[in-house]
Design a protein around this nucleic acid. Structure first.
Lengths: 190, 190
DNA sequence: CTTATATTAAGACCAGGTACTAATTTTCTT
DNA sequence: AAGAAAATTAGTACCTGGTCTTAATATAAG
């Protein structure tokens, strides 16, 4: 890397650390062919913390993100549920849910919200989606808020017919008819 | 926390660190009412590294996990694609994809794999799912390998009819008919 | 040539450890 | 109860990857 001036170096330094936050000052110094002190001055001026703080912050952020994917936060917040009858779920559209370039939400996230909601309103330990018929009406963009409303239309024994309608900015963007089977937990004595 | 014996303490130490890997030895010592040295001996015996290494490993793992969620790895690995014709995607079922108690994969993950595959085989910058008809045949359990096969049935202008069949252990567990719209990137000059 | 800016150096200090030695306390066994 | 074994605590030297401060150079600009 040919010797750069301060402004260029600091710009590249930021890029470099964004791409790999685990680099220590010594490594950065070698990359840019300057002394450790210079790197430290650069970090100061740019307000970039030391490697251990960067690592910790990555860990904490990513940790909670992964947890949120697992716990289902990323597939909508259940704001209102009447078991075996109806439910409401809200999902804020953030970058993570989008195709990179387009700012358009990936279809399966809209589906996931609806599916999760449909399953959640069925009052049983395990609810399985049997089949569903779905339709997307228009793309949903980053920053919109997806509001999914679910209603149980019919219920036959352990078979529930749930309709979900998802709106964004007052438009219906998704509709789905889910058939859900309730399977009571065999471990649980009745 | 009443004074525990070594075995109990070490057990709880592991739990504690699993739940919060960012605790330093001093904090652990206070939690268990023992000296720092004891905590360090415990960590040694249990093969638990120091807080900075733990943090880094959490950061790296979670980092790649988050990236994989975003990049689509978690919704299946595309192993073979013939653009505008067919494709194959493999998804190993891990705990993250399951309902906690049951070891059954959540429906929307199976859908996500199929949806992603269907979109991927369409040769365009942006492909949007218009609608789909899907069916789940049996639950899928942790440890199984989901193999999704997609085939373009019809193609009319920017409208593609894609069928996806997903198998696990030789059973067809999911079928879906997707209608996908291709939308060429307006930024891209033709 | 002189001044301002940028870079490098040097030293004291810090957190959160490792690695090792040794003393002290508790528990078990005979 | 005495002695051995196991568990706990203490203390010291050293490590990494820094911070914070002071000071000496190098380079560029007026």
């Amino acid at each position: 890397m040919g010797r750069l001036n301060k402004a260029e170096r600091q710009k590249k330094l930021q890029d470099k650390l964004e791409e790999n936050p685990f680099l220590i000052d010594k490594e950065l110094a070698e990359i840019f062919g300057v002394s450790i002190q210079t790197i430290r001055l650069d970090r100061m001026e740019l307000g970039i913390p030391e490697v251990r703080k960067r690592t910790k912050s990555v860990a904490k952020q990513a940790y909670s993100k992964v947890k949120s994917v697992q716990s289902g936060e990323i597939i909508g917040e259940l704001v209102d549920i009447e078991l075996d009858q109806s439910g409401l779920s809200i999902l804020e559209v953030t970058e993570e849910l989008c195709l990179e370039k387009t700012k358009i939400v990936r279809g399966h996230h809209i589906f996931a919200q609806a599916n999760t909601l449909a399953v959640a309103i069925i009052d049983t330990d395990v609810a399985l989606t049997g089949s569903s018929k779905i339709r997307y009406n228009r793309p949903v963009y980053i920053g919109e808020r997806l509001i999914a409303k679910a209603k149980v239309e019919k219920a036959k024994k352990n078979k529930f017919y749930v309709n979900v309608e998802t709106k964004a900015s007052n438009d219906t963007v998704f509709t789905g008819e889910f058939i859900i089977f309730s399977v009571d937990d065999p471990d649980k004595e009745v």
